[in-house]
């Protein structure tokens, strides 16, 4: 359950990263298809990242002296990280629901008070979750896997941004 939740959150985060990477680069009025494609690119990148991290984790487990102990340790770290991620995700989803359904002023409230500031805080949220995850003490392989996972989630956003930045900034 915990790995699955983390994987789903990572893929959703990548979908948003795809959207953010594409936003502000296309001046057309009708661009639903453009954004859909950007989200799909993000999802694809997110799935690839999750698979790569799963393979890395599997390799670490295979090489570990006690795979079950390492797995239990990773589960405990993941559970602690999920507390932070789920709180953040809940807040963002609530803001998105408000943005999608409310009248204009309330949509602006969602944007001004949550969607804008919390996009800015996203790297900090990942760092806090990582620190919290590792807070209970962890073995070197668990620390390495956790840090690599968090860093790659943050790095994916930058990668997607760079990918869109290479395209001509017109339409």
């Amino acid at each position: 359950m915990i790995p699955a939740l983390l994987a789903v959150l990572a893929i959703i985060d990548a979908a948003f990263a795809g959207f953010r990477a594409a936003a502000g680069r296309d001046a057309r009025i009708f661009k639903r298809a453009y954004y859909q494609r950007a989200v799909l690119v993000g999802v694809g990148a997110g799935v690839a990242l999750v698979l790569a991290l799963a393979a890395l984790t599997l390799a670490a487990l295979v090489l570990a002296r006690s795979p079950s102990a390492l797995y239990a340790e990773l589960l405990a770290i993941g559970a602690r990280m999920l507390h932070v991620f789920l709180a953040y995700a809940l807040l963002v989803v609530a803001a998105l629901v408000l943005y999608a359904t409310a009248r204009r002023e309330l949509r602006i409230l969602a944007t001004v008070s949550i969607l804008g500031p919390f996009t800015l805080l996203r790297p900090l949220v990942v760092i806090v979750a990582t620190i919290r995850g590792l807070g209970g003490g962890a073995s070197l392989p668990a620390i390495a896997l956790t840090v690599v996972s968090s860093a790659s989630v943050l790095g994916l956003g930058r990668l997607l941004d760079r990918r869109y930045g290479r395209e001509p900034p017109l339409t």
Binding site: G24, A27, R107, I108
Partner: peptide, 23 residues
């Protein structure tokens, strides 16, 4: 021109988010 164009593309994104057309 290229800098201003990029800036205005990003500005349009804010205009979309803040629903300036609707306003």
């Amino acid at each position: 021109d290229a800098v201003l164009l990029r800036a205005h593309l990003e500005l349009q994104r804010l205009s979309e988010e803040f629903r300036q057309g609707e306003r």
